[in-house]
Design a protein around this nucleic acid. Structure first.
Lengths: 229, 229, 229, 229
DNA sequence: AATGAATGAGTCTTCATTCAT
DNA sequence: TATGAATGAAGACTCATTCAT
């Protein structure tokens, strides 16, 4: 149990958030401006896709000129990656908040709450991921960047894995491969998120986004009970 | 159970794939050229994302001049949608092939084969879907287009649903909500697919794409057995 | 009187309309198709400006293929010139119809009717002239073409000149330079025509196009009475 | 007579030419560049028609790059309108200069000088107006733009109207409708101007542009004496 | 160091003209 | 000879990046 490959993450997390990100680009004098730019880009990223954001947009949103961008970042992509990372971090940071602790409450109810958190994460994260897929080099840079210890989805999923492992230890859940279970959990939530993203009547099912909640419960039950006879 | 909302799909599928697709755009004389253009676009779509493909690229890849595109399609997007649909159809067409029939063989082995097929589908389909996310209007056109009877992912998932339902009827699987099970199945495969897509070491786990097969089996087992005590 | 420089025109007119236009281009087999094309172009010219008409438009309107155009005309402009000439001829042909004869009726009323005819001509003709001004080479070709004996505005104005001269001979009008009078008459009507063309509130005055009629009468009176004390 | 609707224009004129034009488009930093672009466009407008001028042409003529155009104008048409207005203003500005005052000199000689000024204006203005006729939306924008107080041809014609009215008041000209007289005057000069424009041997008469002067005198005499017995 | 105007390559689209059938 | 699909030059406009101030 204590050997789950995801166990080491909490520590890594602490380390990671303590140290500043490796400088993506040639840094310049005023760190505040760098932040201003990232903040602006992050804000724009919430509404639009990467490809729909121009350097002018970012500069205007930051209340700065386009030129400064190149004082703090090698190019537009460097800034976008930084903004994406910040966004990502913010989303992951809230993930764990208020999630049930192993051994407390009803297991099924707890799992539903975990599922809901994962569903929210998928909804927040998927657009950015999709956005990056349009730009493979950018994607790879992003992935390389978040792959440092303590970053990324693994972090988050580590919490899920830890919960499942703990409940197993308490005997409140059966024997199963935790990593696979995490994949199934997260994947189900991604699938649910894609539905709502793709239009009123989605790629996967007809359910409107609002009905997602109901579906989450259904999926959790299947995952708990299994398909077996 | 025999009333699962996905039940009617198999029939629709047959109907749909028998009739040719409604013409997406204004057509011109030589159908071969139209195909040539779609083929070229489809080929490019395999490598690059939608936004990275120019009309010149397509024309060059097709061995034609740029102007010809507008003899067969109203604009670049019309052609791209056509190419995307073709890609999609080709992928869906092979989906059903050689999949196990309910009642035959071992249930778990059958489910692994279904899972593998879904995994392949996710791998083939996700890039295009991601690509479209960068271009919401195009995405909506695409979704509207594939939403006709007999189209889309729902079709395909219908086959999975039908299999699960049939095995339930035969008593080889337990009681569960088929739609939720399909979501969990497909979602797990999407999650696995995303891993491989996102770089050597993925968003979700560290497994290289090659190890996916092993993971599929693991996930299927979890789905069958469930997490319950 | 018999020496007015416009006198020779009537004869020239007869000559001109008897003989076919000098072949503008390499002619081809079927004269009917040539006409079909000119007819189609002429029809389109009534609605749109030269620059807004494509070879495809003409071909479609003629019920022919684009290629045939180049069998009967050297290029698009040759056809346009031919159509413009035909249009022009048709407009001039109706000009004389029903205009008063010298010596009959009231002179002022007669002049108003002439003025109205000129106003109508200006309205029909100005757009085409303007259209040609956007394309100097085309303009020059057109002008060269209509400059043959018996063509063009001179023809028409010759009728006005003849009327004025005749009334002078009858003593119903005073002594004045007929050519200058024709210029003043036609010019006034062109000015009135430009007004209506240029928008609700024109370049020259505020009068709406509908009020033109009233203005015509006013102008005619000024022309008759003169500005002198 | 002192209530002729054109009377108020002189004052408006003074007001208008004192204040800078309302900004036609989104402006950018360097006003000199804006001028450079307008100057270049204006220069090109002297030779070619609107439709024959490309953004590249303007940029090259201005010694700038194409992109800069969009820093100072929303689009090509905005710049063209600005250039057209500048051309127009320059022409109108000189119109009044050195024109005779009512009560001084010989009335006929004065009218000839007015006529000559109008002829010059027609020659300078007509090409642009014709140019715009090929592009109705552009024409309407231009007309709307020049329709402000103190703008446009009406302004200029107001000076003519004022002169005529004043001479009437002094008893040096008879009774006639001033507005109609202005139309006849301006129209005659437009007709004369069109002749020279339309080619060596024109639409209306054969006179070469150089002979225009002689014709002006002839027309003025007719306008003064009238056609009446 | 910040500014923001200038740059110009690159995008989609149109259309007169050609030419194989 | 008629057809109409193919061609490709040209047009307006965008936007990441540079650089003089």
């Amino acid at each position: 149990m204590s050997h789950n490959p995801l166990d080491h993450i909490a520590a890594a997390h602490q380390r990671a958030f303590g140290t500043p990100r490796a400088a993506v680009t040639s840094s310049a004098g005023n760190p505040a401006l760098r932040e201003q730019l990232i903040d602006a880009a992050e804000r724009l990223l919430a509404d639009r896709q990467v490809s729909a954001i121009t350097t002018r947009d970012i500069a205007r949103a930051a209340g700065l000129s386009v030129g400064v961008l190149y004082n703090y970042f090698g190019n537009k992509n460097d800034l976008v990656v930084a903004a994406l990372l910040r966004r990502y971090d913010a989303q992951l940071a809230v993930f764990g908040e208020g999630l049930p602790v192993a051994g407390e409450g009803d297991v099924e109810a707890n799992l539903v709450r975990y599922a809901e958190a994962m569903f929210g994460l998928a909804n927040d994260t998927l657009p950015a991921v999709a956005s990056l897929m349009s730009d493979p080099p950018l994607m790879h840079r992003f992935v390389a960047e978040i792959h440092g210890p303590g970053y990324g989805m693994r972090q988050t999923l580590g919490q899920v894995a830890a919960y499942l492992t703990a409940e197993q230890g308490l005997g409140r859940l059966g024997e199963f491969d935790v990593a696979s279970a995490v994949t199934a959990f997260m994947g189900s939530m991604i699938a649910l998120g894609l539905q709502g993203m793709v239009g009123v009547q989605g790629l996967i099912d007809d359910a409107a986004p609002d009905e997602a909640r109901a579906e989450i419960t259904g999926v959790v039950r299947v995952l708990i009970d299994g398909l077996g006879a």
